[in-house]
Amino acid sequence: MLQPLKIIIADDHPLFRQALVNTLTTQFDQPMLFEAETVTALDEILTQHQDADLLLLDLNIPNAHGFNTLVNIRNSYPHIGIVVISGQEDKVTVGKAMSFGAAGFIPKSSPVEQMVKAINAVMAGRQWTPPGCEDLSAVTLDSMSSKIASLSPRQHKILMMFADGLLNKQIAYELGLSEATIKAHASAIFLKLGVHTRTQAVIAMSQLYLDKTPLTAAVEEV
């Protein structure tokens, strides 16, 4: 007997989440649906349901830091198909999402039929991009974006926590590690990115943001 699809919906707009729930419930055979409106809630769901088949991810959920959550989840859960669902649907955004590991990209303006077609394509092991974005060969990642994408899942998670302004001792507590281990990870992150401080690392990370939102300076620690 086939197991029902296990799908996670990560979006901070309740009405849009409900619309997706209604669509998935009517178009698929009794799917198991889980909803998250923040990155923290998404992390909890992923930890509990690592066998999820699909993640529908809005790049703008709180604390997502643009493409950074996509990169982190892609590296941490390579078996889960990720479909980005976004209100930003320009070719550069689509191209970067696909380069960072998304299996599909669905504009929020898409009709229901197109969303269902996209999800079916991804579940069948194919990639999906919206009409007009079939050729993304001209969209390339800059050097720093590639370096950030090369970080290990743990290193990338710590970098995101730097961006949230957490101190080493706070990060150590959250991850169940020692401060010395966090400092060692920080040194490795700086080396990979070619920077020397937390602030420089966070500024580098902003290359994966969707816009030019001003950054909160990271707290510097030795």
Results as ranks from 00 to 15, higher is better:
39 V>I: 15
64 A>L: 15
75 N>W: 06
66 G>S: 08
104 G>W: 04
26 T>N: 14
31 P>D: 11
101 G>Q: 05
56 L>C: 04
74 R>V: 05
29 D>L: 15
88 Q>A: 09
86 S>T: 10
89 E>Q: 14
33 L>H: 09
110 S>E: 09
95 G>H: 01
111 P>S: 04
101 G>I: 00
50 Q>Y: 05
23 T>V: 02
96 K>T: 03
87 G>E: 13
113 E>W: 10
63 N>F: 14
71 V>E: 06
82 I>L: 09
46 L>R: 06
50 Q>S: 11
66 G>C: 11
94 V>Q: 12
107 P>C: 00
57 L>W: 06
73 I>W: 10
51 D>P: 08
71 V>D: 02
65 H>C: 07
92 V>E: 11
69 T>L: 06
65 H>S: 11
67 F>S: 01
75 N>C: 09
106 I>Q: 01
51 D>L: 05
100 F>H: 06
79 H>L: 08
100 F>N: 06
80 I>E: 12
54 L>N: 09
43 D>N: 12
68 N>Q: 14
80 I>V: 11
97 A>H: 01
64 A>G: 15
86 S>W: 05
102 A>Y: 08
27 Q>C: 06
53 D>Q: 08
96 K>L: 09
46 L>I: 03
115 M>W: 10
37 E>R: 04
30 Q>L: 10
79 H>K: 15
75 N>M: 10
44 E>T: 08
105 F>H: 05
117 K>R: 14
25 T>D: 15
89 E>I: 10
84 V>F: 11
45 I>V: 07
36 A>Y: 04
112 V>R: 11
100 F>Y: 00
114 Q>V: 15
37 E>D: 13
82 I>D: 02
56 L>P: 04
35 E>T: 00
92 V>T: 14
92 V>F: 13
39 V>Q: 12
96 K>E: 01
64 A>K: 07
91 K>N: 12
49 H>P: 05
115 M>G: 00
91 K>D: 05
32 M>Y: 12
75 N>I: 03
112 V>Q: 14
47 T>Y: 13
73 I>G: 03
83 V>P: 00
32 M>F: 09
81 G>N: 15
84 V>I: 02
